[in-house]
Design a protein around this nucleic acid. Structure first.
Lengths: 243, 243
DNA sequence: TATTTTAAACGTATTTTTTACGTTATTAAC
DNA sequence: GTTAATAACGTAAAAAATACGTTTAAAATA
């Protein structure tokens, strides 16, 4: 039996997935489809989310929602904002949709984002018809989910500048250029490769492995890993005022 | 008649007030007191907060709560986190207290913080028995409000490094040293006055006024103001990766 | 009025970090 | 071996941060 739900409080999850091959930062959304009498009433996408259960923390709700959608656990997650405007679920299609759901029109949602690799999710046999879209080229989205994604993306942009979260989006073993490509994808900027390379290599927590790329048709690049352990050991807040 | 409340969703406000005289960053809390049969059951402090009304946004709730407590409007405010652990209101005293209130034990609160000057609030004739406490020397607090304050403070520390929010805590006309004292109070660090002074004065949005301090018994300092207008005009995100 | 006291304000040298861009090295494919 | 392509290294200049010495201005006092 399903635990008791809080009908007016939900968690929505912005699942960011980085595709290292296409160098694309993507968002995972699910299909919202409804037809009646042969007529399509709703056909768009929404974020994955669910009610908070009476006996769980918000973090647990988020973890549960991600697992239900992707089967994954232990991914990086961050609660970044609550959305609670009275009109946030009141577009025409939202109202049609909600009629079929056990759902309160005045629902407040706590929004989280997750960081993982696109390839870690098998979308083909996904029961929610989950699909990846580039964060800069989203489909039509229901509720206020476009806004939620945009705010998550802004938070991610800021956060990746000061915390080593990009490594959540990269494989354990990565090349300097792959890290650079990721920054460029997230921030939408060009970075000088020579300076970026030097900067990253000089960090003590970026560890050169005894390995190179395999299966590439040009000079294979050196592989590196990120050591969270070393990062945390050496970490001191430097309080650089930069206004 | 009071608008309809959402009984399981509230907003709590961490009101930061800077006292430029004592150079102290303070938090405004209200008294929570209950006695029965001559016995004191509850005697501590809590953040100010209230239910969200059915027809208002979360931001509006926060604004309303601050106005109710202080009479102030238009202050800087930021929604920084939602707190929703099932056990967040279940300390012994919390349970005693909630019995007397129209209040759901499983309430989720959206926490905001405000930035203002301590002197802008008249706590003496405040009907909630509001009181300022230094953020580093808080009294006994009910519910999970100690945790909420600590997380608000952490967010403020980070944010003041990259956004010009300290000027919300200073008078319109301030001296360089007053700005420095404020940074030192918030961050708990010592800053070299000569370097700080040069750095701040060189900003185009820090404007030297044709005025000096009055009523000081030593050399009066030059007064400056912050121009949000100039700040926003010149602002370009520089995306400095600093991991 | 001259002197003292105290904090404000200015200055200079050094180190560190960032930025810009030229050059070399390595590997697979031909 | 030669070529093509990317990885990887290097150097110089500019900008920013850090450390710390010196001067100036105003009020209090002697």
């Amino acid at each position: 039996m399903e635990p008791e739900k809080i009908l007016n409080i939900s968690v929505d999850c912005v699942v960011f997935g980085y595709d290292i091959t296409t160098k694309s930062l993507n968002v995972l959304v699910i299909k919202r489809f409804l037809e009646a009498e042969g007529k399509v009433l709703v056909d768009d996408y929404v974020l994955t989310g669910y009610h908070v259960y009476k006996q769980e923390t918000l973090d647990q709700t988020a973890t549960r929602v991600l697992k239900e959608l992707t089967g994954l656990t232990g991914q990086y997650k961050k609660q970044f904002k609550a959305f609670g405007n009275p009109d946030r679920l009141t577009n025409e299609k939202d109202i049609i949709w909600i009629k079929n759901e056990e759902f309160n029109l005045r629902t407040i949602t706590i929004a989280y984002y997750f960081l993982l690799k696109t390839e870690d999710v098998d979308v083909n046999k996904n029961k929610y018809q989950a699909k990846w879209f580039p964060v800069n080229n989203l489909p039509e989205l229901g509720f206020d989910h476009k806004k939620i994604i945009e705010e998550a993306y802004e938070d991610l942009k800021i956060k990746c500048l000061s915390e080593p979260i990009i490594f959540k989006l990269l494989p354990d073993k990565f090349t300097i250029n792959e890290a650079q490509d990721l920054y460029q994808s997230i921030l939408g900027i060009e970075i000088d490769n020579r300076n970026f390379r030097r900067k990253l290599i000089n960090k003590k927590y970026i560890i050169a492995l005894d390995e190179k790329q395999v299966g590439v048709s040009k000079k294979p690049a050196q592989l590196y890993m990120f050591s969270l352990d070393l990062y945390e050991k050496m970490f001191k807040k430097n309080y650089l005022i930069n206004i």
